[in-house]
Design a binder for these strands. Structure first.
Lengths: 343, 343
DNA sequence: ATGCGTAATGTTTACGTAAACATCAGCTCG
DNA sequence: CGAGCTGATGTTTACGTAAACATTACGCAT
């Protein structure tokens, strides 16, 4: 373990060179006002000459703060997660906070528990959870008492600060758009059952149809993947009455597009398709996909704001903040085929 | 700043409860052998009762190690980066290391320099850079002396440990596949000029054609985005002699597919298209895309191994490790149209 | 029996920082 | 003109851990 190391430069070294006490060096480092200009210059010069860098471990030990936020997530393979993470990292950096990644191998309670246990020994002041919250329940007991939590995409607003895309309104916009175009009803390719976002989108789809007095077709279930969308799309292609599809994310919409294409159903002439997320590729699908745009950057920003507020104040907040969505209309949607033509 | 806190449980507290010295607690915590069974049990029980968690700041201060790896990257929006990061995080966690994310706002030397300066004060034992290395040159001076570096996708093997996908072989396989199908030559949609990966793929494309004695069409240049691929695709659709396209990544291939589709050129009957990356959606493109599969998980694994080896040994290694690629043949490639038919 | 080695545990110390407290010089005001 | 104040800087201490060193107690060989 003991390896040859360039011994680190400490405040004491700087102090000696500058001819002051180490406390004065500390004051300069922290921008304390009561250091006179000339002294400050000397210290600064000494710091530069020795290439001094504050030791964050010592600082953390003394202050009890790490200036670090942990982010717990299951996977980065979904666009939403990685874009949110990126925004979190960027905003945290702006506030002088670092991000520590805590990957959870599998979305099981055991794994999550393990991640939180590791976290208990980890140097973080707060945690942002990008994951289904019901998995978190068992884990909360293992959280150190003074670590705050913010959750993305969840209904746990009564226990945590929750930041969420306005799933319901996004889905409503998508369905309303299709109805306005004249479609009788809208079919739905839902996400996995255990996903909160998926549930909210499906519920809003159902509600919007019900509010308009339309028939509610049985939803098809996918797992977010394009492949599962393809399977759903094959089924939909065989439904003669199906002229409009709302897929719960863009990847499944991609699969639906492929299935319809293979079955000779033209989009949007025969069937209209709407997605959710607005991933960068959506505008290059065949045809370019009408989809619900999510502002991941804003979600990330609010997460950081929320967690920092809690860290500063030292107390947990509750409540849910919704980030608005907006329908991005491209060319995968059109009025339904005229009645005569479609039979 | 002084906030009401649950005072943290320290070794001394555990020691008092267990009726031993804090050093014995330390020995138990670190699995030191010379603690007799009964004592160990007492300490363990006390730890559990008090919900003791080691303080990583104090541990880091004492040992000089943080058990943390920093990852510097510019963006997570590319599949490759986020998948690599995920693999890095997973493998680091397996070894008991945490990952600290250092996002760089813009790919400029200034930004990178800033990130490294911040890093200087950060608690990391090593750094993995997922980024064009030429931006790193100015930054190395600001790196603390005992922080090791591993680089992904670069030609800096003479200065750093480099882990890279075998770009050249992947591109070669793609081009060879198209030539074997009977295409006279292969057009190329390249990535951005400043990208090392892009350059390697383009060079291998050129070399493979040259080795086969084929004509080398002028490469088109994109920026990795589907939109840029679309623009390139429109140009290619107007090239009568173009029957085969090798796009430097899957997203640009997606754009090419759309352009060809819009121009009424059928894939693969009229034109064959090959991509690079094998993103999950590639199998759901219209048609499913033949592409070069990259093993991002393996890249991440080797990065972590490399950096840990350097951290253990305390010295920098040089050299490049190549992760093999493999051609995933789907239905976007076929023999060229028969001569008579195409005119 | 005496001494010595060894295994188990306790005591001291240092890591680098920053809060708390102490000191000292210069200045204002009664 | 000196008491008291203020601003600049120095000294002490504590944060939690673990290495290094110190101290027991016990067993075994002479």
């Amino acid at each position: 373990m003991s390896r040859p190391k360039a011994p680190r430069v400490s405040m004491a070294d700087v102090a000696k060179l500058a001819g002051v006490s180490s406390q004065t060096v500390s004051r300069v480092a922290n921008g304390h006002p009561s250091v006179v200009g000339t002294t400050r210059q000397q210290v600064l010069a000494a710091m530069k000459q020795l290439d001094y860098r504050p030791n964050s471990a010592a600082r953390a030990l003394k202050s009890g703060q790490f200036r670090t936020i942990g982010v717990i997530l299951f996977t980065l393979s979904s666009t939403g997660n990685s874009r949110t993470l990126e925004a979190i990292a960027t905003h945290a950096a702006l506030q002088g906070y670092a991000i520590t990644l805590i990957p959870v191998a599998m979305p099981t309670q055991d794994s999550v528990l393990g991640a939180f246990t590791r976290l208990g020994e980890l140097a973080v002041d707060g945690v942002i959870v990008i994951m289904e919250v019901h998995l978190l329940d068992a884990a909360t007991v293992t959280l150190p008492p003074n670590v705050q939590v913010v959750v993305v995409d969840s209904d746990a607003g009564d226990r945590y600060t929750v930041v969420d895309t306005d799933q319901a309104d996004g889905a409503r916009q998508a369905v309303a758009h299709l109805l306005e175009l004249g479609h009788r009803t809208v079919w739905h390719v839902a996400g996995p059952e255990e996903s909160f976002a998926s549930g909210r989108r499906a519920q809003a789809w159902r509600d919007t149809l019900a509010a308009a007095g339309r028939e509610i077709p049985p939803p098809l279930r996918g797992d977010w993947s394009a492949e599962s969308g393809y399977r759903a799309g094959l089924a939909l292609a065989d439904e003669p009455g199906c002229t409009a599809v709302f897929a719960a994310n863009d990847q499944m919409a991609l699969g639906v597009l492929r299935a319809l294409h293979e079955r000779g159903r033209s989009v949007p002439a025969d069937v209209s398709v709407v997605g959710f997320d607005d991933i960068p590729d959506a505008s290059s699908f065949i045809p370019p996909l009408t989809t619900v745009h999510q502002d991941f950057a804003e979600v990330g920003r609010r997460c950081v704001e929320g967690i920092l507020r809690q860290i500063e104040r030292g107390e947990t907040e509750h409540g849910t903040a919704l980030v608005p969505t907006r329908l991005e209309v491209r060319t995968s949607t059109a009025p339904p085929p005229r009645h005569g033509a479609s039979r």
